[in-house]
Design a protein around this nucleic acid. Sequence first.
DNA 1: TCTTGACTACTACAAATGTAGCAGTATACT
DNA 2: AGTATACTGCTACATTTGTAGTAGTCAAGA
Lengths: 125, 125
Amino acid sequence: MNNELQKLSDSEWLIMKACWISGKSTARDIYQKVVKKKKWEYTTVKTMLDRLVKKEYLEFEKLGNLCLYTPCTSNKSVTESAIKNFMNTILDHNFMPIFLYFAKDRKIPSEDLESLKKLIEEYDQ
Amino acid sequence: MNNELQKLSDSEWLIMKACWISGKSTARDIYQKVVKKKKWEYTTVKTMLDRLVKKEYLEFEKLGNLCLYTPCTSNKSVTESAIKNFMNTILDHNFMPIFLYFAKDRKIPSEDLESLKKLIEEYDQ
DNA sequence: TCTTGACTACTACAAATGTAGCAGTATACT
DNA sequence: AGTATACTGCTACATTTGTAGTAGTCAAGA
């Protein structure tokens, strides 16, 4: 479900990540997480939260005079459609450039390598 | 070099792909390729070409009254930085979601699988 | 040479995005 | 109770993106 969501901008991704980590949170909570990465004003974060509600990535709720925001999309499914879109519009379903990038990236945790090998085995039989 | 280029939008990607395939081309050439995928007006394509010149992805040249556009960026390097940005802002350098997506995608050409295996071998020694 | 069509240069305009500011109200401290 | 704070709701405004339209010019055919 939740299929036809509008795309997220890079900035909105940053906000959503904080929301997914925190679960139901006040604007200030999210602000405090996010400001460590980006020097945004509180109201900037607030604006983006409200836009994410409008885009139906977050649910909105009031507790007294506080605004609470809760993710109503999962990180997993949103990430998946981001990948799908990326493979579609940028890479034309060609995985090689990613694999090359992966292979060149010397910072890869070796568990990733292991998982990948396992996936290939499975896929391969 | 050519490092700090502005990001391309999805639509601009479509145009750039046509440009990379065609090399130096007139606006009409590009339009004819692109219109098969997107029902854009000629002037829409023209506008995007001009924006891509401004963004320094294309070089501009006149031949008589014709406008010629030539890529001055390589598909490879632009793709690479798109991947970099994607890994950065969306996936936090975690390759697993891509691999999972790859593994689930039953339409993968088996050469891709082979190449991936080879890459892993190399990386793994 | 007049007309028609192709091309370009320039302009347009709404929606999305980045980035807040401000005024008003609710709270909490003195 | 009065004052300083914290929050919210609303507004703002420049830039980027999507998507053209139009007027003027050049070239080719009648």
